[in-house]
Design a protein around this nucleic acid. Structure first.
Length: 563
RNA sequence: UGGGGCGUAGCCAAGCGGUAAGGCAUCGGGUUUUGAUCCCGUGAUCGCAGGUUCGAAUCCUGCCGCCCCAGCCA
């Protein structure tokens, strides 16, 4: 049984839900939500959360909301909500009619604040940001109460109303919860719940000039939506007592917050700050550069939604900080693409090869299998003629041990065609091999009686007269250190070879009308897709999604290291 | 030296007192007209030290290590 079909691996969140179901908590409802802030593009780390939230809901017959946590108008934009929706949809999830925004609840949240003030549990503070920081104390010393801590309920109500109507300037006042300045949990030292921000919001425009803080908005939004399990990342663990406190004070439906460890991937970075810098400094072409771990980047790189979902299943969910090997992600795409990508022949670094005894002008249409993993994919024909291109790597004048490809005097099979023998390597003035002169054995045509004759290697090729031109971009990891974020300066571990652009590639003619985004396996090389941005108008551009596993490369490396 | 978490093979990760799943990677071997795929095989006594128990990765105690928290960010 493949990983794809296997039962879900148990994890602590699923266990909690199963227990809740057993005790009929929430009347057996399971309702989750994915709550992105629309201030950037989604990345593979978000995918983990999306798959978790939508996956759990689906598994237990519940629903999952898409809720934008848009409480900070200075950082959020409508453009981001659109890209986020596109990405979630692309990943394969559907939130139906349940598209919500924290800003939908601004009025309700305000009413809740009034309720809190009336209960004597909140007050307006005039302290400056700097003063609040000083009053807060430190990790080891308790804070002290603000001089405005004991304002009357009436005064607080009046002040909050005037904050809302715009009477005060940014930063001049805040509304704070009245909890405990001596709490060892800093989140409970009278946290700010409203701040004044004369900024226009992408959805509410200029209706508001006070905006709720995350802690004030999140739990109440969960409650309003009837979320049963509010799943978030570990850094919010310290916020849970506050999450619970607000809900209890308000006496409203109380979802359960559960925290899990966010995804870390080796050789990659998951920080918006660094993404921004990479783009700004031109190290990548944009947020959707195929080297970026953003969903837009992975999509353009050729990753399938399914492969990302499988990856998220593969890595599991737990509370310990971990670093997932990027090889797992690569394995996930290969597994998926192996099943669905049509095979095709492409020569990336062409070397001319002439078959001396093949009739000039003759062309044969050879039958090739489109996908050995999928019989229904059928076959196609590929033209064969006297002059071909093969991969430069497939010839070595002085072949090392275990090199099963072409060399002077050696035989090799041309895939789907004949066995050929290298008779001569023609060199240019620099001594570089520029052409191979070979002979073929007409008795060895694929499928023919004697075609069973064994040779050690099979290589791919393309007929020179029929080949079409293309640009191929070979991508590698963006960073060459396993933990780029741990380096003092990530610039120093930028992989200088993360992109190699090959502009003289030769493809078999069937690729002439390859559509944007289409994925193929270039036999013996890897999986490639038609670039959705730069391809078109007579220009073909392919991105390498991931190379095939390469046993020869390993042998070569070993030989180079010391033999 | 406050609080909250976490420590099972190189990397993920099950396990919830009965004698260590699975995946990735690695290394062997088989099949193969992709050195691909596929198929076999290969490794841990569970951070350390004590204790409870017939029996502990699972319970208790004490250490050690790592992560998070002092935004009017989320």
């Amino acid at each position: 049984m493949s990983v794809t079909e296997s039962k879900p691996v148990p994890n602590f969140i699923r266990n909690i839900i199963q227990d809740d179901l057993k005790t009929n908590k929430n009347d057996g409802r399971v309702h989750t939500r994915f709550p992105p802030e629309p201030n950037g593009f989604l990345h593979i780390g978000h995918a983990k959360s999306i798959c978790l939230n939508f996956g759990l809901a689906a598994e237990f017959g519940g629903t999952c909301n898409l809720r934008f946590d848009d409480t900070n108008p200075t950082k959020e934009e409508a453009a981001y909500v659109n890209s986020i929706k596109e990405d979630v949809r692309w990943l394969g999830f559907d939130w139906g009619e349940r598209e919500f925004y924290a800003s939908d609840y601004f009025e309700q949240l305000y009413e809740y604040a009034i309720q809190l003030i009336k209960a004597g549990k909140a007050y307006v503070d005039d302290l400056s940001a700097e003063e609040i920081r000083q009053y807060r104390g430190t990790l080891t010393e308790p804070g002290k109460e603000s001089p405005h801590h004991n304002r009357s309920i009436e005064e607080n109500l009046d002040l909050l109303d005037r904050m809302r109507t715009g009477e005060f300037s940014d930063g001049s006042k805040v509304l704070r919860a009245k909890i405990d300045m001596g709490s060892p949990n800093l989140n409970l030292r009278d946290p700010v719940i409203y701040r004044i921000l004369h900024a226009s919001h992408h959805r509410t425009g200029d209706k508001w000039c006070i905006y709720p803080m995350y802690d004030w908005a999140h739990g109440q939004s969960d409650s309003i939506e009837g979320i049963t399990h509010s799943i978030c990342t570990l850094e919010f663990e310290d916020h849970r007592p506050l999450y619970d406190w607000f809900l209890d004070q308000l006496g409203i439906f109380h979802p359960q917050q559960i925290e899990f460890a966010r995804l870390n991937l080796s050789y990659t970075v998951m920080s918006k700050r660094i993404f921004n810098q990479l783009v700004k400094d031109g190290h990548v072409s944009g947020w959707d550069d195929p080297r970026m771990p953003t969903l837009a980047g992975l999509r353009r790189r050729g990753y399938t939604p399914k492969s990302i979902r499988n990856f998220c299943d593969l890595i599991g969910v737990a509370k310990r900080d971990s670093m997932v090997d990027v090889a797992m992600l690569e394995h996930s795409v290969r597994e998926d693409l192996n099943k669905l990508a049509p095979r095709v022949m492409a020569v990336l670094r062409p070397l001319k090869l002439v078959i001396k005894n093949y009739p000039e002008g003759q062309v044969e249409k050879l039958v090739a299998i489109n996908n050995p993993e999928d019989e229904s994919a059928g076959t196609r024909t590929v033209p064969f003629s006297r002059v071909l291109y093969i991969e430069q790597d497939d010839f070595k004048e002085d072949p090392p041990k275990k090199f099963f490809r072409l060399a002077p005097g050696r035989e090799v099979r041309l895939r789907y065609a004949y066995i050929i023998k290298c008779e001569e390597a023609v060199k240019d003035a620099n001594g570089d091999v520029v052409e191979l002169r070979c002979t073929y054995d007409p008795e060895t045509k694929s499928g023919a009686v004697q075609s069973g004759r064994k040779v050690k290697g099979t290589i791919h090729w393309v007929s020179a007269a029929h080949a079409i031109d293309a640009e191929v971009r070979l991508y590698d990891r963006l960073f060459d250190k396993p933990k780029p974020a741990a380096e003092a300066d990530f610039h120093e571990c930028l992989n200088p070879n993360s992109l190699e652009q090959l502009t003289a590639c030769k493809l078999e003619p069937s690729l002439a009308d390859a559509q944007a985004g289409a994925r193929y396996q270039f036999e013996r090389l890897g999986y490639f897709c038609v670039d959705s941005k730069d391809s078109g108008q007579g220009k073909l551009v392919f991105n390498r999604t991931v190379p095939l596993r390469d046993a020869w490369a390993k042998i070569e490396k070993m030989q180079a290291q010391g033999k």
